[in-house]
């Protein structure tokens, strides 16, 4: 028994409609399609621990409010937005906790060292150091542009900025990384 393969993969909108009609396999396809990019985005933003949990929370929140998703933007862009919001909430909570526990400065300084665990070639390490020096917004824009190939308009939605601003942030990020590499 052979199943006919679809001529083209179902779009996100089609999968959402199928899931809303009761087909839960569509949820599996959506998760498989977007989980890794979300994890990559989280890691590029400096999340070191519980990336899995963050991605999971993103999907749970998205599916719980999927009926309100109006498809004005791509599903992936919307998921990035949710992940970023969750990350900000988590950082705020962590900051409050740190204020209470008064953890020493070394921990606070390693907030963006997710890439430190990487041991690659020299070029990769120099790029890693340069990326770690970008501002959070520059880093977000750079990551979405490089990792996902997203257009500036989509990035603007994901990071809550404007298209022009995102373009500027990306070019500034590229310039800073190049300068960093040239300085080394």
């Amino acid at each position: 028994m052979t199943a006919l393969a679809p001529s083209h993969p179902a779009t996100d909108a089609e999968l959402i409609a199928r899931w809303q009609s009761g087909d839960q396999r569509a949820a599996a396809l959506l998760v498989e399609r977007h989980a890794t990019p979300l994890a990559r985005f989280a890691a590029s933003l400096g999340v070191r621990e519980e990336v899995d949990e963050l991605v999971q929370d993103t999907f749970v929140r998205a599916f719980n409010s999927l009926e309100s998703f109006r498809a004005d933007s791509a599903l992936r862009t919307w998921l990035f937005t949710i992940l970023k919001r969750l990350l900000l909430d988590r950082k705020r909570a962590e900051r409050r906790r740190r204020d209470v526990l008064e953890i020493d400065e070394r921990d606070a300084a390693t907030e963006y060292d997710a890439l430190d665990t990487m041991v690659g070639d020299e070029m990769a390490q120099r790029v890693r150091d340069a990326v770690n020096r970008l501002s959070p917004l520059q880093r977000e824009v750079f990551s979405l542009r490089v990792n996902e190939g997203m257009a500036y308009a989509e990035i603007a939605v994901a990071v809550g900025s404007t298209e022009g601003s995102c373009r500027v942030h990306y070019h500034n990020a590229i310039r800073l990384i190049k300068e960093q590499l040239n300085d080394d």
């Binding site: 890439l115 990487m118 890693r128 990792n147």
Partner: peptide
């Protein structure tokens, strides 16, 4: 950078 990000993704 793309390689770096991809490898750093858990």
């Amino acid at each position: 950078a793309a390689t770096l990000f991809a490898t750093a993704t858990p």
